[in-house]
Design a protein around this nucleic acid. Structure first.
Length: 434
DNA sequence: CTTAATGATTCTGA
DNA sequence: TCAGAATCATTAAG
């Protein structure tokens, strides 16, 4: 029921809706209302029907005639005006785009990551970010690692730019195409410049939303890349054998107090040439932290290792001393023998015997001779360094079996397998058991 | 693919 | 603030 009238109305509107002047005019000339209208509609239909019968030339001719009609521009103007007042104003109202905070964020991020920024600056900014992310200090080791990162980043950057360009080009092409089309059509139907403009705006919005997607996925890619390369955890590399050896040597030869001082850590880091990943210092700290805790947690498991390193250390010491003595070989050797343990909670005390309580000695042939000098050396070193536990004095260290043994730490193990040659310190000792 | 080893990070208590 | 403990995440070995 409702349909009918509305339809009718819209029909009537084809030519004159909303334009009082015109419809009045028509009405005036049209004679009696009902009949006149019906007649008009009939005419229109008739014309439409005849169009299909017309040849192309005929149609063109008519079109041309219409275009040339002197009333045409005026009519189009009026129609455009009407259109603008109705359709455009409605659409315009709802087109207030939301503030694109999102886009801003993306832009900022891309800029910060060096994807959308100036060409070279991007790379260095990323490198800086990388350096910062990995802890800063070391500096030197970053380049090799980050070149890969930078390469990938610039790859992303390149893709981003080409895509962006592509979109832009497509957008422009499409826009001009649409504009031409509309201009063309504006000859046959009422299209105001404003409308064209609006259309262009719509197109741009569409394309910019595509662009935003591009930006978003680029951001994601960068984030992934970042997390992959810069997250220290992911970057973990195992130390090489040599480095592990050096650290272990130190650890086991300072078993009584495996807390290297800052300098010692630095020294160790240098010796190990820890370059990968992170700040050397903290890497060493981490290593010792992990080592302590893991050693303590499962001494049995480390026994063999301990013995091995102890032996090694002893050998080293001997060699050194035989060469000439020197007390301080900077890093580990000294103290070759300390035996001890760092306190463990459950154990009461530390120190494994320096010498095996009984027996079996491991004395390598080499070891024997220089022991005395080692002792001296060690004493010297120890007193100098004084670093470790306050509780530990040289005498304690040397004291033979003083302490011990009972296993404070290692539960239950039996006495040593490796033992040192006589005098305490130099000895290899190592804890025992197994 | 599973698992052990291990470097790094995070949380917690002194 | 630091060491220890717990946990994460990756690597390497099987």
């Amino acid at each position: 029921m409702e349909e009918q009238p509305r339809l009718m109305h819209s029909h009537a509107g084809v030519g004159m809706a909303g334009h009082p002047g015109l419809s009045q005019h028509m009405e005036g000339t049209g004679g009696t209302e009902g009949d006149g209208r019906k007649q008009d509609i009939g005419d229109i239909l008739q014309q439409i029907m005849t169009i299909t019968d017309q040849s192309l030339d005929e149609a063109q001719a008519r079109k041309h005639a219409l275009n040339c009609h002197r009333m045409k521009p005026a009519l189009f103007n009026v129609l455009c005006e009407i259109k603008e007042k109705t359709v455009l104003s409605i659409r315009g109202a709802q087109e207030e785009e939301p503030p694109d905070a999102q886009l801003m964020r993306l832009d900022n991020m891309l800029l910060a990551e060096g994807v959308s920024g100036p060409e070279k600056g991007g790379g260095s900014a990323a490198a800086a970010a990388a350096a910062a992310a990995s802890g800063g200090g070391a500096g030197a080791d970053n380049s090799a690692e980050h070149s890969d990162y930078r390469a990938k980043l610039s790859q992303i950057r390149q893709i981003y730019h080409t895509e962006l360009e592509k979109y832009e080009q497509a957008c422009n092409e499409f826009t001009t195409h649409v504009m031409n089309l509309l201009r063309e059509q504006s000859r046959t139907r009422p299209i105001s410049p404003k409308e064209i403009e609006r259309m262009v705006g719509i197109i741009h919005r569409k394309f910019s939303s595509i662009q935003m997607q591009l930006k978003q996925s680029t951001c994601e890619a960068v984030m992934i890349l970042r997390s992959r390369f810069l997250d220290a955890r992911r970057k973990r590399r195992n130390f090489n054998k040599q480095a592990t050896e050096i650290l272990n040597e130190y650890f086991y030869s300072h078993l009584s107090n495996p807390y290297p001082s800052e300098e010692a850590k630095e020294e160790l880091a240098k010796k190990c040439s820890i370059t990968v990943s992170q700040v050397q210092y903290s890497t060493v700290s981490n290593w010792f932290g992990n080592k302590r805790i893991r050693y303590k947690k499962n001494i049995g498991k480390f026994q063999e290792e301990a013995n091995m390193y102890a032996a090694k250390t002893a050998v080293n010491a001997t060699n050194v001393s035989s060469h000439g003595s020197q007390a301080n070989s900077p890093s580990t050797p000294n103290s070759a023998g300390s035996a001890g343990s760092f306190n463990m909670s459950n154990s009461g005390d530390l120190f494994m015997s320096v010498q095996s309580l009984n027996g079996d000695s491991y004395q390598g042939a080499q070891v024997g001779a220089n022991v005395q000098s080692q002792v001296d050396t060690l004493r010297h070193v120890i007193s100098q360094t004084g670093g470790y536990s306050e509780g530990l004095t040289a005498s304690q260290m040397y004291s033979q079996q003083s302490i011990n043994a009972n296993g404070g730490w290692q539960d239950a193990t039996t006495p040593s397998s490796v033992t040192s040659p006589t005098e305490g310190p130099g000895s290899v000792h190592s804890d025992t058991s197994n």
